[in-house]
Amino acid sequence: MKGRYDDENLKWIPVLILAIFLFPFILKGATSSYKYYLYVLNIAGIYMILTIGLDLLSGFTGLMSLGHAAFLAIGAYSSAILVDQVGIPFELSIFISPVIAGLFGLVIGFPALRIEGMYLGLTTMGFGFIVKRLIIALREWTGGSAGMPVSKATIFGFTINNDWDNYFMIYSFVIISVIIARRIVISKLGRAFMAIRDSEQAAQASGINLAKYKMLSFFISGLFAGFAGVLFAHTSHFISTDHFDILLSIYFIVMVLIGGAGSIYGAVLGTLFIVLMENLFIPLFKDGLAKYIHLEAGDFQAFIFGFIMLLFIIFQPLGLYGMWLKIRIYWKLFPFNPRRRST
């Protein structure tokens, strides 16, 4: 009998995991400002966990969400409150807080049973605003719009102190998330999700309970995002409603789509690409350019970012993962590639 992963090339996975954990050591050896690079990678890692969940929802189930920053906020705030005010240990909070975010996922999943497409996208956007408001209104616990400081994470007596520790914690969880998400995708659940995405009517006709699976999709996606939120709160040590902007939600969907919706690796790649580009490459590029010409940094950076994104979409509409697949096919067929029609 054929195993689950038989049709895939798995031998690179351990190498990749090893590379992920060795990378900080290389970075530290190479540059004294490694903490900055690690920090950017840490953000990418946290967002990866979220976008993997978002990909399950939007890429696999076909349910648009423009409010995922809200789930991040719920996870972050619940963990901050649970750990710092209620006194629950962090090890427990990483299980409870995502569940809270997941339950909110069910709340927003409920309208999703009736509302479709772009209507749903904008309902979730509204959900994002409502959650932000709710956090401000609960100012006794959350500190309102002034934000709140969060303690450091402690796992089994080991305190996660700095970017170095954060990196290992975050990327361990990223790897776990990728594995879980890939298992979900190839399970019965994942196939049901994809059936719903491809055609709701056909899925229903094949005996898939639409309500159940849509709610489940929102729940799982909320779990991932809430989990990312927990990591976010305890690694940045300060959270405020300004963090969880509507623009962040839009960026999340951009990350998923630029990676290529409907592939877990795509979400990871897309997140890495956007976060690195915004926080690392463009600022460094600007620094390099600033030696020669005087320019106002802010809008110039945004312009470059938008411009690269637009070019990317026009020339690679299938995303990074699609690009990777094309390259792979190209190498496999080499030198017998079908010639491109010159129209």
Binding site: I43, H243, N279, A297, G298
Partner: peptide, 12 residues
């Protein structure tokens, strides 16, 4: 440097 009034970017 620019933060665009976003705390996350301010940290970066």
């Amino acid at each position: 440097e620019d933060h665009g009034y976003n705390p996350q970017k301010a940290v970066v």
